[in-house]
Design a protein around this nucleic acid. Sequence first.
RNA 1: GCUCCCGUAGUUCAAUGGAUAGAGCAGCGGUUUCCGAAGCCGCAAAUGGCAGUUCGAAUCUGCCCGGGAGCACCA
Length: 592
Amino acid sequence: MPVWFNPSHTIDQALREVAALMPEFDPEFDPGVRPADPRFGDFQANGVLSFAKKHQVNPRELAQSLIDAAQASNHFDPNMVELSLAGPGFINFKLSTAFLWQWQLDYSTKADYQSGAMQLKSGRKVVIDYPSANTAKQAHIGHLRPMVIGQAIARILDFCGAELVRDNHIGDWGTNFGTLIMKIKRDEIDLNALNEDALATLDKLYKDGSALEKEQPDLRDISRKELVLLQNGDPDNTAIWEQIVKISKIAFEQLFDQIGVEVDITLGESFYRNKVDRIYEELTEIGLAEHSDGALVVWHDEVKKFSRENERPYPFNIRKSDGASNYASTDLATVLYRLEKFKAEEIIYLTDARQQDHFEQLFLTTNKWFKAKGYPLPEMQHVFWGSILGADKKPLKTKSGESIKLQELLDEARARAYEVVTKKNPEFPEQERKAIAESVGIGAVKYADLSSNRTQDYVFSWERLLSFEGNTAPYLLYAVARINSIFRKAEIDPSEPLIGASPIETEAELALARRLMGFVTALELTINDLRPHFLCTYLYELAGTYSSFYNADKVMVSDEAVKARRLILCARTRTVMQTGLELLGITALERM
RNA sequence: GCUCCCGUAGUUCAAUGGAUAGAGCAGCGGUUUCCGAAGCCGCAAAUGGCAGUUCGAAUCUGCCCGGGAGCACCA
């Protein structure tokens, strides 16, 4: 009989079943199972404490009776798990060595690990809205986090069984096109004549156009008219717009390839241009939308900050007073499309923290609207993040105060990593050093972005993120490279099964075996909060536990049975590390 | 005026309301005839302040202090 893949879940289920048969408990009882401090055991159940408090009974006595009933049931094999009472009423679960070892034997491949993870999001229809960059603007460092965080979240959701649609909801229909078209016409720019710097040129044209509008406010009216012309299907403006979008897409796809951003569909705001009328109609029909200063808006007076009673009223503006659609109109149309087209049960938006008000208004509006129309309401989540700061704790900029171009950042990462690799391993072929620099450099930038809690700002430091010490990509990659080195020297394929192993027994072996079991818990934490740093922390701890094991217990010993069991632990560590890194979008290396 | 994010060791980051708040760097001290020392082991060092909720608070609530951000016709 195989051992439990996810002991935390199994213990939780078993305790619920046991408690269901006991008069002391009721269906409200939540066992509260979670990984425990290793000093006390592998898992602990805290739920008895709050339950006992609520029902005015002695928590220790209640916990003891649950332990007794659990042990009397057939759920807990005493050879596999030991239950004990501790403190004010904790129940500790200590897995036996037999369990830990059997687990390593039963679950060995990526597919095995995934089969356990699939329960987490099985079949759930999820639309993830990322990276959703704007058109006609060069990508800068601000575009890094949506790409990196979004890509990791998407891969993890996919791994955990979600039916995922990665929707690149590009901003290709906004007010900036009015300015851009005005400037392009004014300067008589031929977009077809632009070369590979096309996007940089567009970027500059927009900036210059905006500056011009500030100097000559009457140009703003021209820009506005150009936008309305575009939105009404004017052929000239449409042709210009198509060129701009094309140039932008080509440039962004180059970045996506480098960063590992995967996209299933690209439906920009323009896609919804014919779908916004229905939004205006439905929201007006149900009495949600009303006119205000010529615009069509939705008020959420029950939320204080959006109330019209405020000194500065803050409605959700869904149609501008000139009749044009905006961010809100297209986002509302997009929600409806995702529901009707993809049957979305969950929608995840990735944008920076400054847009929280917009999404709060969007979610409130959708909630009321779908309720009134009887549409099923998808779960909607806004994943946001803090800024990337420089050493001075201010948003990272170039020395001259410009925002750092994303391409330049990536190139610098490669160059710095190449320098390190060449210094450490000058004998490696040039091509391999380049490949290593690619993985280490880009991986380090991504990992720096993923490894800290996304809602906080983080300080960007080349020195730290490329360091081989601490919670960095190079440290993790190094751990994998060392494992590969062992298999290379032993001339053993790490993916082949190993036979003749004796059961683990040393402290370092047991610690590593325990750590390996934590992968699914790390994925679960990551998915619950959509915070990839939980997975990063786990992989860092796994690499550390492996390094301790590596130092304490030599793998290539003469005792074949001991060697085999240690090689098994190495192979498992390698698989989990590689799988985890892949989910984060980092490529593990054979050597580095 | 109405809000949001954040405040943990000298520093950069962890801690799904749970037991003695964990790491990296920097500092100090060990460790290599042995699989990659880019490693490992150890020492020292922190929850902005005051109340409250709770059996239990870095975590939840309120107020205060400090940093950053937002407040309709940009996205």
